[in-house]
Computed example of a mutant assay.
Amino acid sequence: MNAVTTMPDQLSGPKPLLDARQGGAAAVTMWLFVVLPFVALLAAIPLAWGWGLALVDILIAVGIYLLSGFGVTAGFHRYLTHGSFKANRALRIGLAVAGSLAVQGSPTQWVANHRRHHAFSDREGDPHSPWRYGTSVLAVLKGLGYAHIGWMLRRELSNRSRFAPDLLADRDMRVVGRLFGPLVAVSLLGPAVLGGLITWSWVGALTAFFWAGLVRMALLHHVTWAVNSVCHVFGERPFASKDKATNFWPLAIMSFGESWHNSHHADPTGARHGVLRGQIDPSARLIWVFEKLGWAHDVRWPNAQRLAAKRNAPAA
Rank of each mutant, 00 (worst) to 15 (best):
F248V: 10
E236A: 12
L206T: 15
A205T: 03
L206Q: 13
P182R: 04
P191F: 00
P191Y: 06
G213D: 00
L206R: 08
W249F: 13
A218Q: 00
H148Y: 06
I253D: 01
N247C: 08
L153I: 12
P250K: 06
D172H: 11
L168N: 13
R216E: 01
P250G: 09
V233N: 03
V223Q: 03
R237H: 07
M173S: 04
D166M: 10
R155V: 08
G150S: 07
C231M: 03
F163H: 12
W200V: 14
H232D: 12
W225I: 02
D170I: 01
G150L: 06
L153D: 02
T246I: 03
M152V: 15
S241F: 02
L153T: 13
A205I: 11
P165Q: 09
R154I: 15
H221V: 06
L194D: 02
T199N: 14
R171H: 13
E236G: 09
N159E: 12
V215P: 01
F248K: 06
T199Q: 11
A226N: 08
S229V: 06
P238T: 00
V233M: 03
L167W: 01
G177N: 11
T224N: 07
P165A: 03
S158K: 05
N159K: 11
L188V: 15
D172N: 15
L214H: 03
G235R: 01
V186D: 05
R237K: 13
S241W: 07
G257D: 10
W249E: 09
A218E: 05
W249T: 06
N228T: 10
D166G: 08
G150P: 11
G204A: 08
H148E: 14
I253W: 10
A208I: 07
A164L: 12
H148K: 11
P165C: 05
V230P: 02
P182S: 07
R154H: 12
A240W: 12
A240D: 14
L194C: 10
A245R: 00
N159T: 11
G204N: 09
G150D: 07
G181M: 08
D166Y: 03
G257V: 13
A240C: 11
V175S: 02
V203D: 04
V227R: 00
A245D: 04
I149A: 15
V175A: 11
R162S: 01
V176P: 01
A252F: 12
A208S: 15
G257F: 10
P165F: 00
L183Q: 06
F239W: 09
G190Q: 03
R154E: 14
E236S: 14
K244N: 14
L168A: 02
R178F: 07
L220F: 12
S187Q: 08
V186K: 00
F256H: 05
W249Y: 10
S229Y: 05
R155G: 08
F234K: 07
G213T: 05
K242N: 14
I149E: 09
